[in-house]
Design a protein around this nucleic acid. Structure first.
Lengths: 216, 216, 216, 216
DNA sequence: TATGAATGAGTGTTCATTCAT
DNA sequence: CATGAATGAACACTCATTCAT
């Protein structure tokens, strides 16, 4: 269809292709997605994909890079727009959850796909992926969360907290998909509630504090 | 290689093949993994894989099913061996984290791979995967956690807590892999520490309680 | 099933296998039919097929040979049981049609399959097949048909008549299968009727006799 | 071989592939014929076969359809070119025999192969094949044969006559192949001769008319 | 004798990638 | 610039055939 293409500038075409690729990679996974499929979804012929992006592998990394940038920028923008600082952690989480829920395709490519594909992507993709994960979560968890106190316990602990946030956000958007009557906001409310209830129970002694290094 | 024909009974060979498949699927992902690769890793010829397991797809679901059973049993056994009840949640989490960290291949196949492959696995695999996730986490989180009080807040909240635990365990074992000087136990200690610190800060007002439904 | 077989004498087993093979070859064609399928249909294990018949190819030729013998014998027996000589041609055709219609599996293997499979069967199978074709039809058409006059016109013409009979019988049993309310006998009646009508029309001039060597 | 990339338009290549397929299917049978073999015979690489024809099965049906069209057209054209009407039946048969003898590959695919392959081709192929058989033979036998008298005896009888003609033509071209000194024309002469002789003998009482429904 | 276990070799099919226009 | 045409290489799957028990 649409034969004799419209002579758009290269940069635009490239974005169209990446847009399509993110959608297709997200739905089918890296290996199942065929370049034909992506080209068709982008409305260009297959050689264009190769002229612009070079190879399927480089196309995939291009997706990773662009979505990494977008993700960082999205959360950063949200945080910039000034919440009162004490609510930093909560609002940061809210933005993060919101982003993941609102950009499922991008997130799937960025996080799930980029982790589960074997060797060819070890370095290039790994570092790009880690960049978002680290940057976003250090923004949300460490930086924003406790502006007054700096690091919570140590660098590693901050990273752990970050990973927990990421894994939770990832797993919870699956839950969101399976419960269509919930929204990203209602989910965040539930999570916060759980935290409060947990703390209360903890205070009343319903949950015993573990002595670290106890079991096993 | 492996010389010629070892003539083992079917049941044994089947397990060998599934063992190999879990390893290979875990490393390469479902689509990248070739049946040849799996057969070689199992020390059998390709036709054996088909004679015993039927197809690549059915081999994959066989992996899911077996690892699902094993995972449930592993955590269940750990919980049965009687910790003092107040420590239920902590020890449950410890066992769960320990399992995930100690069985990375199985977990990758069970959780990451089974989620990210497209259509062919919707039903069969999905339900098997959900079964572990639900069973394990309801064991760890809901059942064991609060034996005196039953459900925490509601069914959905229990599920959310379960998903958080799963997503966190998943993400944290990535972190473990990247920090080889840590162990599953030291990781659990760190997490518990963070929880305690969090609660303390919360109590001292360092973290403001959000009014649920606030932001955005 | 039926594990631990019954220790039957070799000759019997061989016939069982050939019986099954004829059925399966007839239904699926030589190449589609798998030795597994045949072994199962015969109620023996696959190695038995090889021990007794050697190879798939030799099994096929064994089918051809046996069915060739049976076909010749069937028609010969029918003809021996003394019809009045003038009816020889008609009753010969009747027997032949009857045989083909009543032994579809055998006929399919003997005639259709044996002609349409490529190279490996050129000689062995071809000669066996030709043997039946020639023997049966010379019996029916030439020998029996005109005992008083010997050959009709010449050897080649007799062969032509034979081929016509064979081709017609083959094609007509297809027609029989598609018209289940007809029987082999009713079909023969129809054919004879047609012949009579043809001759009558010919006599009345409705059909012009061609001058041989005319057209083109 | 055939050097590299000849860059022909799709329609041309499609016909080349079908041409080659008819030859190969005719020689080897549907199952023995490999797509590789066909591709090589067509002078293209295997993927072209799949890009243009989709699958081996669809390639086979494409052969059937094209040869069906050609066969119908060939006989129709021959009949159109005006023989004196009384000779209709004979010239019709002559054309039909001539076509079959001159297009053995096509005929083998159309008639022999299409009948003897098992299930996958039941509908699509069956109807296409039946279309030629019916159309050609009703043209030759019924329509052309007796323009003055319409149907011979009844619909079923016309069909029977048609089947006889087809089966005879099929069987006789085998005979032609085995007797290379004969031609399609000389064969037709022989057949006509036989018919005449038959009628004469019949008239002189050498052949007794059967009472339909007699024997058995 | 009889068979479950095992495989080498091949087939249909797909896909990333490139050339010729 | 843009694309239809073309292919090398690989992959899932099957089958006739044999060996070890």
């Amino acid at each position: 269809m649409a034969s004799k293409q419209q002579r758009l500038p290269r940069a635009v075409r490239e974005q169209q292709v990446i847009d399509a690729a993110v959608r297709v990679f997200s739905r089918s996974g890296y290996h199942s997605a065929s370049v034909d499929e992506i080209a068709e979804a982008a409305g260009v012929s297959k050689p264009m994909v190769y002229i612009y992006l070079g190879s399927k592998e480089r196309l995939f990394t291009a997706c990773i890079h662009r979505e990494a940038d977008r993700a960082v920028e999205a959360v950063r923008a949200a945080l910039r727009s000034g919440e009162p600082p004490e609510l930093g952690l909560w609002s940061g989480l809210r933005e993060f959850f919101g982003y993941v829920a609102a950009n499922r395709d991008a997130w799937r490519v960025l996080y799930q796909q980029a982790r589960t594909q074997g060797e060819p992507f070890s370095q290039e993709v790994h570092t790009a992926r880690v960049r978002v994960v680290d940057e976003i979560t250090s923004m949300v968890v460490a930086g924003t969360a406790l502006p007054e106190g700096g690091r919570i316990v140590g660098e590693r602990d901050a990273e752990i907290l970050a990973r927990i946030a990421i894994g939770a956000a990832d797993a919870l958007t699956d839950w969101l998909l399976e419960n269509p009557d919930e929204t990203a906001d209602s989910l965040v409310d539930r999570v916060l509630n759980l935290a409060l209830v947990g703390v209360e129970r903890y205070q009343t002694g319903d949950i015993a504090a573990p002595a670290p290094g106890t079991a096993r």
